[in-house]
Amino acid sequence: MSNELLKIKNLKTSFRIGDEYYAAVDDVTLTLNKNEVLGIVGESGSGKSALAFSIMRLHTRAKIEGEISLNNQNIVQMSKSKLNKIRGDEMAMIFQDPLTALNPLMPIGRQIEETLFLHNKKLGQQGRKERAIELLNLVGILRAERVYEQFPHELSGGMRQRVIIAIAIANDPELLIADEPTTALDVTIQAQILDLIRELKEKIHAGIILITHDLGVVAEMADRVAVMYAGQVVEIAPVDRLFENPLHPYTKSLLNSVPTEGQDRLHVIQGVVPTLKNLPRTGCRFAERIPWVDASHHEDNPTLHEVESGHFVRCTCYEHFYFPDNKEELENGIS
């Protein structure tokens, strides 16, 4: 129990469209332990980034309900000033696009020092500079003294992502949220950045939430995985179990749509990801995309069921799910 770092309970994050609020994250309950990597997988519109931004409370215009507690402090209710003490210190974030996440008019060194200055007043000017250079070395930047004085546009994408990581780990955060940290990078650079995150995890012992759409990245990095669809967690399991024994129809479909060895045709999920405004709010949210599964197999109010130790699945439809093996069957299912 004392191992628990982050607890999210019944989280609901809603955005205003017109006069109404629509929940992008709807009833998410999760925990993250110290020193653990939790992968969150989903496609665009699944609410995974909205979830990350909710934890950091970085949404400027969203309604957040429920509970997010980091070391037993509820972030949802927290005052702005308290929040600013925690952000960048106890929890930090790595962003998706290294080309835009740094201030173009500020030298690299100053951008790292800012977070040191905000959370460690004892460190003097000289101390901050030393620490900034130490951090640049730590994230594998050669010639750290020189980079310290450079501006973002003088660095490559991979280098900038390293700087962003240096900023995130500057104050040894306990919780590190990485929002698609390698999506904008080349594969070889991606491998290097993932290596770096893994190494740092050993050094700073942070709990990491890794948000990605790339199942391969999750398979390599995560201890546990949560799969999100339409604002909800549909399945959560230890990483081995999720890839060996995926249960939810969405997880299975997703795994089948990635090109792998010896596959002739990729699986295609019927229909499209519903937009925020058109999300089904009642019943199984994935039901409309597997119309061949009989309606009676879905729960009216799907909840997460523990099917094996630590392995949860939403709704009971997984028990009756199968891939229609030909088109005919598929069409029969629709009619």
Binding site: Q190, A191, D195, D214, V217, D240, F243, L255, V258
Partner: peptide, 20 residues
């Protein structure tokens, strides 16, 4: 390039890192 591709089987993880 080939070594950099993430392996989708979590059980191969250590082997993949080693290889990389």
């Amino acid at each position: 390039l080939i070594a950099a591709i993430p392996d989708i089987n979590p059980r191969n993880r250590e082997k993949q890192f080693e290889f990389r």
